[in-house]
């Protein structure tokens, strides 16, 4: 598998979220994803940027266009230096937590992509990697 293109964006303010959504839309479009798949990617990215901003105190997202033989994919890696997710499994489940609202974003977002991996430790930040293949 090869990374054919790579870029990064900062997520420090709310306006950045809008920029991330637009970039994801553009990258997905250029990779040839259909409209529904594009929308799924943008929506998942929106959830994760919000997590990074609201719960992580700000972070970055790395865009990578992938090529695995004939397959093409988009991989997004969201990193923040926030307090971390205490229970990753719970966050990934469909549990809908009110107030902090952490659970909902991740649980739903994982259904919008093909692969998700989360690394998070209390006090050590969070790293979420999502990939969608065409």
């Amino acid at each position: 598998m090869v990374v054919v293109r790579r870029a990064a964006l900062e997520i420090r303010r709310e306006e950045d979220m809008v920029r991330v959504r637009r970039s994801v839309r553009q990258w997905a479009d250029e990779l040839g994803f259909g409209l529904v798949d594009q929308t799924k990617l943008v929506t998942a990215a929106s959830e994760l940027s919000r997590n990074a901003l609201v719960h992580g105190g700000g972070g970055t997202v790395v865009f990578e266009a992938l090529e695995d033989g004939p397959r093409r994919g988009l991989r997004l890696t969201f990193t923040d230096e926030g307090p971390g997710i205490p229970d990753v499994e719970l966050a990934l489940s469909d549990g809908y937590t009110t107030g902090s609202g952490l659970g909902f974003g991740l649980g739903g977002a994982k259904r919008l992509v093909n692969e998700v991996s989360i690394e998070s430790r209390r006090g050590a930040g969070t790293r979420v990697v999502m990939t969608r293949w065409k």
Partner: peptide
């Protein structure tokens, strides 16, 4: 929009 509706259903909303 259709794409939005389909995605929302997948999201579980």
């Amino acid at each position: 929009r259709p794409a939005v509706a389909i995605t929302l259903v997948e999201l579980g909303l």
